[in-house]
C-alpha cells in the first residue's frame, strides 16, 4: 500500500485529475439516466448497449486496420457511436414487440455485439489492448475525451430537461401515459438512444463489462430511501458522484484497476443503504 504523501503527489498528477473530472461528468450523466432505466425496469439495456458498442468499436478498429493511413484515432469511436445508436433503436424495437420478451431482446443484441467484437478484433491489424475496452482505462483519458464527454453531458441533460415531464409520466406508467395521448414510443427510443450515447462516452472509465453498473446502481440505491421523484433526481447524482470519486480514490490508494473499484464502491454503498433500510424498518416494527 502506498503512503499518504505519495497519494497526495499522485492526486496532483494531471492524469489523475483528468480521471476525476471525467468520472464526475460520467457519474452525473449515468445517474440521471439510471432513474429512467431502473424505474422503467429496463436495467439490462445498459449491458446490451455496452456489448453492442464493443462490436461497433471492433468494427471501427477493423476498418481502421484496413485503411490505417486515412483514419484518425477517433474514427472507431464514431463508428461505434453510429452502431450503438442503431443498436439502441433495434433493442427498443424488439423490447416493444409483443413477440419477444424484453430480456430476450437484450440478450440477442448482447451476444451479437460480443460475437462480432471478438471475431473482428481477432482479425484486426491495429494493436488494441482489448482489456482497455473491456475494463476501461480511466487513467489514460485525454483532455479531448473530457471535452467530448462534457459536450455530450450538456446535450443529453438538456434533452432530458426539455422532455422531462413526458419522460417522468412514461416512466411512471406507460399505459396511463399513452391513454393521456403521449406518444410513449418516442420516449422509449429517446431513453434508449441517450443511454447508447452515454455508454460510448463511458467505456473509457469502466469499460464494456461494468458500464451497466453505472446505469443502474445510482438510482437503485437512491430509491431505497426516497419518497418522491424529486428526491430521487437529487439523490441519484449524489450517489453516482460518491461512487466514482471514492472508487477512483480507492483505486489510487490500493493501486488496483479503477473500473472494478468504482463498481465495487457502488455495490458497497448499495449494500450499506439496504442494511440501513432494513435496520430502519425493524426499528419501526
Amino acid at each position: 500500500m502506498i503512503t499518504l504523501e505519495s497519494i497526495w503527489t499522485l492526486l496532483q498528477a494531471g492524469f489523475i485529475q483528468r480521471a476525476f473530472i471525467i468520472s464526475i461528468i460520467i457519474a452525473i450523466l449515468c445517474s440521471v439516466l439510471s432513474i429512467f432505466i431502473v424505474l422503467k425496469r429496463v436495467s439490462l439495456i445498459g449491458d446490451g448497449l455496452a456489448h453492442t458498442a464493443f462490436g461497433g468499436l471492433a468494427l471501427g478498429y477493423f476498418i481502421q486496420g484496413i485503411f490505417v493511413a486515412f483514419f484518425s484515432q477517433y474514427v472507431p469511436w464514431l463508428i461505434a457511436g453510429v452502431i450503438v445508436v442503431l443498436g439502441s433503436i433495434g433493442i427498443t424495437k424488439a423490447m416493444r414487440s409483443t413477440k419477444i420478451s424484453g430480456d430476450a431482446a437484450v440478450a440477442v443484441f448482447l451476444q451479437l455485439g460480443l460475437a462480432i467484437g471478438i471475431t473482428l478484433l481477432s482479425l484486426t491489424r491495429v494493436g488494441i489492448r482489448i482489456e482497455s475496452l473491456l475494463f476501461g482505462s480511466i487513467l489514460l483519458v485525454s483532455f479531448e475525451q473530457i471535452l467530448v464527454a462534457l459536450v455530450i453531458a450538456v446535450i443529453t441533460i438538456s434533452i432530458i430537461l426539455l422532455f422531462f415531464k413526458e419522460l417522468v409520466y412514461v416512466t411512471f406508467d406507460e399505459t396511463q401515459a399513452r391513454a393521456s395521448g403521449i406518444r410513449t414510443w418516442f420516449y422509449d427510443y429517446l431513453i434508449s438512444v441517450l443511454a447508447g450515447i452515454v455508454v460510448i462516452v463511458s467505456i473509457p472509465i469502466v469499460g464494456v463489462l461494468l458500464i451497466s453498473a453505472l446505469l443502474v446502481l445510482p438510482a437503485l440505491t437512491s430509491i431505497q430511501f426516497t419518497k418522491s421523484f424529486r428526491q430521487t433526481v437529487i439523490l441519484s447524482p449524489i450517489v453516482g458522484l460518491a461512487t466514482v470519486v471514492l472508487g477512483v480514490l480507492f483505486s489510487v490508494v490500493f493501486d488496483v484497476a479503477p473500473g472494478g473499484m468504482i463498481v465495487l464502491t457502488g455495490l458497497a454503498i448499495f449494500a450499506v443503504v439496504l442494511l440501513a433500510k432494513r435496520i430502519q424498518e425493524s426499528a419501526k416494527k
Binding site: 424505474l39 411512471f172 437512491s222 431505497q224 419518497k227 418522491s228 421523484f229 428526491q231 430521487t232
Partner: peptide, 9 residues
C-alpha cells in the same frame, strides 16, 4: 418502491 409522492402522481 416507486418513488412518487401523492402530489407528484
Amino acid at each position: 418502491n416507486l418513488p412518487f409522492s401523492v402530489f407528484e402522481t
